[in-house]
């Protein structure tokens, strides 16, 4: 019942976003039917296009899960983009450094990405839990550190530059490649990993004592503390898991699609995860659908771009509008919560 209502709200929001988008499309002198036709065709018209949608949805699902697991603990992981980068880089590093048998190599690479992503979550988690540093700021700062660090790693003159023109590492060993799920498409087994991980996150949050404690901390720190929960440790755990999820997403993306780390591999998947997590109402199964929606928008956007019926800036405006309308109600709640927390914090300080 509640699900139906939420779906109704989301459906309405998507329509509203597209409606406003249509007005802007028309106002800027582009053909509304053509743009929307290409948007739909780009995302769904055949197996290849739908594979594109799923391919786009995969990293967004990882980062949405990353955002929402921290959010469930009352924390804001704004740094999924950086965790994605650093996880992706170290997965690639393990991919071109080690020589291992086929499946093992891939697993090691994925674990490397997850572990380093986890480290990137641990730092802000620890700073928040032990030093009270605002994780909103620290995750964002660390995100830039990760992006710039990996950018330097692979740029010419950096220690891991592949020796070609582009800012890229060398190619990973073929044993480390995450195979494509469908030949002739970019869709890799990363999608299935993402689905399984979403189920695991759901199980963890709603069917384990630790998940219970994590949610309790997120709902009411003081009550959780009263209930014998080690709040600091739980917050650190949540941030580590958030980092692991995003890092794993980066690893899957690099191993499955790019087969070597390259700076421009993410068109902002980490940021999409914030929207995805909010659209999903912080529910892991909801995140699957949120990621599909965002993936479809991205794939459809590429369709509009390709067909040349509208400039890509307009496509980006369309995507932004839909996301904005879907997220808006949750965003207001979020800002309210944020202010409440700040006020509570301020009181404790003064």
């Amino acid at each position: 019942m509640r699900l139906l209502r939420e779906l109704g709200i989301i459906g309405l929001s998507v329509s509203l976003g597209l409606g406003v988008g249509a007005i802007i499309t028309a106002a800027t002198g582009h053909s509304v039917p053509a743009v929307f036709r290409e948007l739909a065709l780009g995302a769904f018209s055949d197996v290849y296009r739908f594979a594109n949608t799923l391919m786009r949805a995969t990293p967004i699902l990882f980062t949405s899960l990353s955002f929402l697991i921290a959010f469930r603990a009352g924390l804001f992981n704004i740094g999924a983009e950086g965790q994605l980068f650093i996880g992706g880089f170290f997965a690639a590093w393990a991919g071109f450094t080690f020589s291992l048998p086929p499946v093992l190599h891939l697993v090691v690479c994925l674990l490397f990405g997850a572990a380093v992503g986890g480290l990137w979550g641990f730092i802000p988690g620890w700073l928040r839990a032990r030093r009270g540093a605002n994780e909103f700021v620290t995750t964002m700062m660390l995100s830039y550190v990760a992006i710039l660090l990996t950018q330097w790693f692979v740029s010419p003159g950096g220690p891991f530059h592949g020796g070609r023109m582009a800012a890229r590492t060398v190619r990973i060993e073929s044993t480390a490649e995450l195979p494509r799920l469908l030949a002739g498409t970019q869709l890799s087994w990363g999608l299935l990993i993402a689905f399984i991980v979403a189920l695991l996150v759901w199980y963890f949050l709603f069917r384990t004592p630790r998940g219970y404690e994590l949610r309790a901390v997120g709902q009411r720190e003081t009550a959780a503390e009263y209930g014998g929960v080690n709040v600091a440790r739980t917050q650190i755990l949540a941030m580590v898991l958030a980092g692991v999820l995003a890092g794993l997403g980066g690893a899957a993306e690099i191993l499955g699609i790019h087969r070597g780390f390259t700076v421009g591999f993410s068109p902002g998947y980490g940021w999409d995860g914030i929207a995805g997590g909010l659209i999903a109402r912080a529910h892991p199964i909801g995140a699957v659908f949120a990621a599909l929606l965002m993936g479809a928008l991205r794939a459809g956007g590429a369709g509009v771009d390709r067909a040349g019926v509208a400039p890509r800036d307009l496509v980006e405006v369309l995507q932004g509008l839909v996301i904005l309308f879907v997220v808006a109600p949750e965003l207001f709640r979020l800002v309210g919560r944020w202010r409440l927390r700040r006020r509570a914090h301020g009181r404790a300080q003064s």
């Binding site: 582009a166 002739g184 699609i257 790019h258 421009g264 591999f265 590429a302 390709r306």
Partner: peptide, 18 residues
């Protein structure tokens, strides 16, 4: 002439295949 302006390097492969 059909042309595309990829937003990110991530878009390239999809366009070749497309």
């Amino acid at each position: 002439l059909d042309y595309v302006e990829p937003r990110e390097i991530a878009d390239y492969e999809g366009y070749y295949r497309e």
